[in-house]
Design a protein around this nucleic acid. Structure first.
Lengths: 198, 198
DNA sequence: CTCGCGTGACGTTACGTTTCGTTTTGACAA
DNA sequence: TTGTCAAAACGAAACGTAACGTCACGCGAG
């Protein structure tokens, strides 16, 4: 590990080339066959430059994915919670399974299983912003009386996000996308307010 | 890759030693730091013997985990679906997060992201038997009028299994176990039959 | 002048395979 | 049931290869 580089003198050109090369390579070769040496070669950069600024290839790919993703995690709010959830959950599922970041996403989470710092970074920069947007939308639906109020919204979030990730990581493939609308419909069957006390 | 060994002449002694060493090492070192060479050394076995019978360390660990797990995926059936689900989902969550197979489970699924054959084997030998048991129990509950009949039971299974895996893979740790009973309770709020047509 | 940069080389680790005796095993004969 | 024998799996060792993460060097930009 190289100690304490001065980030003010950092080369933006090298940084961009590294992230671009990493993102291109992870999609063409897959995360497992991605190497720091290949990133350096394609980026026209020295290996020490990569090791100077990132702890692992997982960290590089996370940052590349993070930039590809942008910082717009906004949830639509048309007033119709069923429509908004169907739109967004399907979109997220599609982005995970068939989208540009699919390989990077799987790879980072796989590596993060053995790298707590990487897991922390992934959750803070990718997962939690997305969860927060979803929960905010669900809370507004609860306030509008469109969803029951006796199930915590963070559990509701899990009911939508967990199946998407579960199906993605466990290799259900396109099936996960196809069934995402059905998932939203079925979960909403249970999350609608009910007049009686069952 | 070595071609077509005769499984009738296979050494059970070597097989046992390899699986035991793999399972011990994956728990002590973690899956990422597990190597075929270390397995061979600890098992007192030559590397070619491992490569002769398994395609990768993931395949070795899967088989070791599979044997540790046994083939009893039975779901309790006391007639009370809430109690049975709470018991079993909590148990499965605990086994995943803090149990003996935790490291092996995470490692195999991580490697399976880049190894379709391993993913297929994992699903067929571990995941699907467990899902089948869960779904059978849910179907009997539907038949008994304890659960609504307008949500497919395979979606119901996902509502319980997906959050467990999702929380495990995304590093929620012990929190996943602590909240599993709450999860069952909240999901059941929505899966109970409702008298009205909302 | 400083310090990040690219280059190239370093020792190390693990890969997956090959070679080579040794030992086990199933098949067959008595 | 028991003995023998060839085939094949075995353990050990060594191989070339790939990528690791680090270091030393000289260049060039701030």
């Amino acid at each position: 590990m190289i100690s304490d580089p001065n980030s003010e003198r950092r080369s933006e050109r090298a940084r961009r080339a590294i992230l671009d090369a990493a993102f291109d390579l992870v999609n063409r070769k897959g995360f497992a066959k991605l190497t720091i040496e290949a990133i350096a070669a394609q980026a026209g950069v020295g290996k020490p430059t990569i090791y100077r600024w990132w702890r692992s290839k997982g960290a590089v790919v996370l940052e590349a994915m993070r930039e590809e993703l942008g910082d717009d995690f906004a949830f639509p709010d048309t007033g119709d919670i069923a429509a908004d959830l169907t739109t967004q959950i399907t979109a997220v599922s599609q982005r995970l399974v068939t989208g540009r970041i699919s390989e990077a996403y799987k790879g980072v989470i796989g590596e993060a299983q053995n790298d707590p710092a990487l897991m922390k970074a992934f959750r803070e920069t990718v997962l939690e912003p997305s969860i927060a947007e979803c929960r905010a939308r669900l809370e507004s639906a609860v306030a509008a009386g469109q969803l029951r109020s006796d199930v915590p919204t963070d559990v509701m979030v899990d009911l939508f996000y967990a199946p998407i990730h579960y199906r993605h990581f466990l290799g259900f493939g396109d099936d996960a996308v196809r069934r995402s609308a059905e998932l939203v419909r079925d979960v909403l069957l249970g999350l609608r307010p009910r007049p009686d006390a069952a």
